[in-house]
Computed example of a mutant assay.
Amino acid sequence: MTDDLHRRSVVADTHNDLLCSVVGRPVERWSSYFREQWLPQLRQGGVNLQVLPVFIDDLYRPEGALRQTLRMIEAAHRIAEGNPDAVELCFNGADIDHALGAGRIALVLALESAPGIGEDVELLETLDRLGVRIASLAHFGRTALADGSGEDHTGSRLTRAGIAAVAEMERLGMLFDVSHLGAAGVDHVLELATRPVIATHSSARALRDHHRNLTDDQLSGIAANGGVVCVNFFAPFLHETDYRIERLIDHIEHIAGVMGVDRVGLGPDFVKEVLADVVMPCCEAAEVEGVPTDQFLPGLEGPAGLPLVTEALLARGWAEHDIAKVLGGNVLTLFRGQLGRAAH
């Protein structure tokens, strides 16, 4: 029953940093490496819709951030061009429906913190032309546009350039991603936003008091805005010590209880393989922002394990139609209505 429901549902993963892994290979291997290493995992997990964040490591900031941003965007295009039978780079809801109808995985490009643009908000249009359809303004720290959640003690809202970025993204039809944004920044965005927003990989602060998670007030605000919150699977963001799938389901249920079942999705943030690829073993940090980097939900270290979520939700007594919404139906509805739709 689990496998049948999972395969019948649209499964959307709104945050997998696999591009970081791909661009670490020689350019001529980008397409084939994706096909050999990541495509089997996505298929095993039943993924139909994959958001590809463009995350820029500290090594490239600030001088090389824009160049690395462009390399990662180019990698996504080459993945799609080199695997046309399996994936399709999508720019709007119609593209996604076309990919799904053809049995291909729909890929959507996103910027994570956008360090490459600095205060040059006009570059958002350039990146939009290249296919980017989702963006956030900060990671853990401070950018020219906003403060990340690691700077919450400053109480900072968006900068003047950040305010302009929100308006420009809404004009272009680029979804604003509040994941990683500081608490005051999330509130500021919700004051400014005239279109729905998304949290691509955030969990519930009421269950795990970490700055990377969203408070119930923030969840309610995003629900009122018409947005969707996609739950992060990273174990230390779900519980201090209990790293079992049951804690993930707790977060899904809590967020659904606050926002409604139509406002919840999955943003796994599968980082185990990516960290193994991009961090030198001799330099691997034991913690990032106060949480261990080597703890994962058993079976959910990568996309192949996604059917376990369906199984766990069924075990909790969830109705099949509600499970289908959480697996990807809600994200698909949001993308169909907003992605790439320029403001009139």
Rank of each mutant, 00 (worst) to 15 (best):
V278I: 15
P53M: 06
G46H: 05
L172M: 11
F234S: 02
A99D: 04
T2P: 03
A184I: 00
I73M: 10
A12L: 04
V261F: 02
I96P: 00
L214F: 06
N213F: 04
F34Y: 14
D17K: 02
S203V: 05
R35V: 05
E88M: 15
R157Y: 05
G93V: 10
M72G: 01
F233C: 07
G340M: 10
V54S: 01
H251I: 07
H201R: 04
T2K: 01
I117S: 08
R29E: 15
V258W: 03
W318S: 01
L59C: 02
P298R: 08
A12W: 01
R212C: 03
R61F: 03
A161V: 11
R25S: 09
R208L: 03
A184G: 07
M259D: 01
L89F: 14
E74L: 08
D13A: 08
R43D: 09
T154E: 12
A110S: 15
V132M: 08
V11L: 10
R71N: 11
R336H: 10
V189N: 01
A165Q: 08
L49Y: 03
E74Q: 13
L39C: 08
L111Q: 12
S136R: 04
A342D: 03
R142S: 13
G290N: 12
I245Y: 01
R336Q: 12
D13M: 00
G82C: 11
S21Q: 14
